[in-house]
């Protein structure tokens, strides 16, 4: 069952992303939980979170969130490709390296989302929401990484 852990936690992250949490102003800046899970598992167990799984999870998230369908799927696929190409920099390295990598990834991802949505809406959308979301995503990552790491160690023998 442990081999399902990456997919299961990513699905959980997806559900968490679309949760209605009654905090004023939270919805627009909801951290990109799915990106965190995708990043973590692409570094530690890329074999257990294949592109197809990320594509399906991303598509479902888009369909449920009411945003443009395909955007999250595309984002997660690109993130996976970029991270798996640079895995050697992060595997078995101290956490600050991993966090720095995620910071770069999130910055790029948020800029990508903003550019894509602005292009599709044919107007320059408010950039502040994007910045807040990036900052929140980067700040929450250590907690997510800790939880994912603990679960991974508890349920998986290797990796």
């Amino acid at each position: 069952m442990a081999i399902l852990l990456p997919v299961a936690t990513t699905v959980l992250a997806m559900l968490l992303s679309i949760q209605a949490i009654p905090i004023p102003g939270y919805a627009p800046v909801t951290p990109a939980f799915t990106l965190m899970a995708a990043y973590h598992w692409t570094i530690y167990r890329p074999d257990l979170l294949p592109s197809l799984a990320l594509f399906i999870i991303g598509t479902i998230q888009d369909l449920l969130s009411g945003g443009l369908t395909g955007v999250t799927a595309l984002l997660l696929l690109l993130a996976r490709a970029i991270v798996s190409g640079n895995r050697q920099h992060f595997v078995n390295r101290p956490f600050p390296f991993v966090w720095a990598g995620f910071t770069l990834l999130t910055g790029g991802a948020m800029l990508f989302l903003w550019t894509l949505h602005s292009l599709l809406a044919a107007e320059l959308l408010d950039f502040r929401g994007t910045v807040f979301r990036a900052v929140l995503t980067i700040s929450v990552f250590p907690v997510a990484s800790f939880l994912l790491g603990r679960t991974q160690r508890a349920l998986m023998s290797e990796g």
């Binding site: 949760q19 627009p28 969130s65 945003g67």
Partner: peptide, 15 residues
Amino acid sequence: RVIANSGGTYARSVI
């Protein structure tokens, strides 16, 4: 009852 909120920065909807 509201059961989900659009978690995106670029859309505002609830389920």
